[in-house]
Structures are given as structure tokens and as C-alpha cells.
């Protein structure tokens, strides 16, 4: 079942997007003066593209460790509700918390989207091991890509950097849209995009969290009202 999870990455379009994104992350590590080993540890243990990009670019531009940590943690808030909504799909009454540590670590946009798509096809008691195979596959691809990007950074044309940086918002947008099957999710996506620019003018430092909570709660409220009318 671990091997089946590992093999599932081949059939996922998102694997190829991850590969290109992490070539960009490897190249960024090279260009901002970090070592290859440092970049690989980051890809394996941070395992979140936006956080890695912000960590390297903010440290490189002279931010303090605390400023960089705050910028990283703001982008990482999204991971919490993703983990909360994904883990219950893998649990059985016998599951212990420590069984879920690795799947929680693997949770990022790609894993979240592919988890919702693939877990229902796997018997419940085998989903954790399947998830660990899937996550191991994604991380391995990204470690290879980080290395290739790091080693070839000098030869990559500048336009490649633009293309790779554009991959993250585009992929996040369409995979989230794909994952939004219920009306509440679709509405949350639209409201989240619409509300963020307004909330961002407040410059609270946690604008993403505020707009996400407000937009998500409104979307849920609409869902509740519609259910009651049925």
C-alpha cells in the first residue's frame, strides 16, 4: 500500500508542477547564497513552497530571523485547517496521534488536493500507510528537483524564474477550485479572493487569517441557511 501511494504521484499532474516549482526553489537557494544541503533540508522539513521562497528571499534581503519567522508563519496558517480537514479521512478507532504525525507533516496544497481525490479509493485502515507513500513520493520528487535547480541555477534563463514563480498562485488556484465540490467551498474561494485585497489595506500582519476566517465563515453560513431551507 505504501508502494501504491508512492506510485500514485506518476498519475498526478501536480507532481510535474511541484517538480518545476522546486527547480525554482533550488535555483533561488543557489542565487541567495544558501548551501545545497540547507536547501534540501528546507525542502524536506519545511515542505511548503511559499514559506521556503519567503524564508530565503527575506533573509537574503537582510530581514532579521524574527522578521523572517513571522513572514513564514503567516503563510503557513493555511496548513492548520488543511490538516484538520484531511486527517479525519485517515483515522480509524485504533489510530493513535503519533500515527498521524507524518501525514500531518506531508500536508501541503498538493497533498491536500490529491488526498481528497485518492483516499476514498483506498480502504480506510490502509489510508495512513498509503498517505505516507504518497507524501514520500512528493517529497522525493522535490528533493531531486531542488538539487537540479541548485546545480543548474546559473544556466537558467531569467524568464524561467518568472514562469516558475507564477506556477504557485496558478496551481493553488485551480487545484483549490477542483477541490471545491461543495457550494460552501466554491463560495469560500470566490469570497476569499474578493475579500483579501480589502482586508490587506488594514495591514494587520494577519490579513490572510482575518480574510480567510471571515470569508470561510460567511460561506459556511450560506451553506447552513441553504440546508435548512431544504
Amino acid at each position: 500500500m505504501f508502494a501504491l501511494g508512492l506510485r500514485s504521484i506518476v498519475t498526478s499532474v501536480l507532481t510535474y508542477v511541484l517538480f518545476a516549482t522546486f527547480i525554482g526553489i533550488g535555483a533561488l537557494a543557489h542565487d541567495t547564497g544558501f548551501s545545497l544541503g540547507w536547501a534540501l533540508l528546507g525542502s524536506a522539513l519545511i515542505w511548503a513552497g511559499p514559506a521556503q521562497v519567503i524564508l530565503m528571499s527575506s533573509l537574503h534581503s537582510g530581514a532579521t530571523v524574527i522578521q523572517a519567522a513571522l513572514a513564514v508563519t503567516v503563510t503557513a496558517v493555511r496548513l492548520m485547517p488543511m490538516v484538520v480537514s484531511l486527517l479525519p479521512m485517515m483515522k480509524t478507532p485504533k489510530t493513535k496521534y503519533y500515527h498521524l504525525i507524518l501525514p500531518a507533516h506531508f500536508t501541503a496544497v498538493t497533498f491536500w488536493v490529491e488526498g481528497f481525490r485518492l483516499f476514498p479509493k483506498v480502504p480506510r485502515e490502509q489510508r495512513i500507510i498509503f498517505a505516507n507513500g504518497l507524501g514520500t513520493g512528493f517529497v522525493s520528487v522535490c528533493l531531486i528537483a531542488t538539487t537540479i535547480g541548485y546545480q543548474t541555477a546559473a544556466q537558467l534563463p531569467p524568464i524561467f524564474g518568472v514562469a516558475v514563480l507564477a506556477l504557485t498562485p496558478l496551481t493553488f488556484l485551480y487545484s483549490t477550485a477542483l477541490n471545491a465540490r461543495q457550494t460552501a467551498d466554491k463560495l469560500a474561494l470566490v469570497l476569499g479572493v474578493a475579500l483579501y485585497p480589502a482586508v490587506a489595506t488594514l495591514k494587520t500582519g494577519v490579513d490572510i487569517l482575518i480574510s480567510g476566517l471571515v470569508a470561510g465563515t460567511i460561506a459556511y453560513g450560506v451553506h447552513v441557511v441553504r440546508e435548512r431551507r431544504r
Binding site: P81, A184, A188, G192, L209, S211, V214
Partner: peptide, 12 residues
């Protein structure tokens, strides 16, 4: 899930 989706929308 709605909040996760809306936070992602904000990140994008």
C-alpha cells in the same frame, strides 16, 4: 474546509 479554502484564496 471553507476557512482553509478562503485562506488559500487569500494566499493566492
Amino acid at each position: 474546509r471553507a476557512v482553509a479554502t478562503a485562506i488559500l484564496a487569500g494566499v493566492i
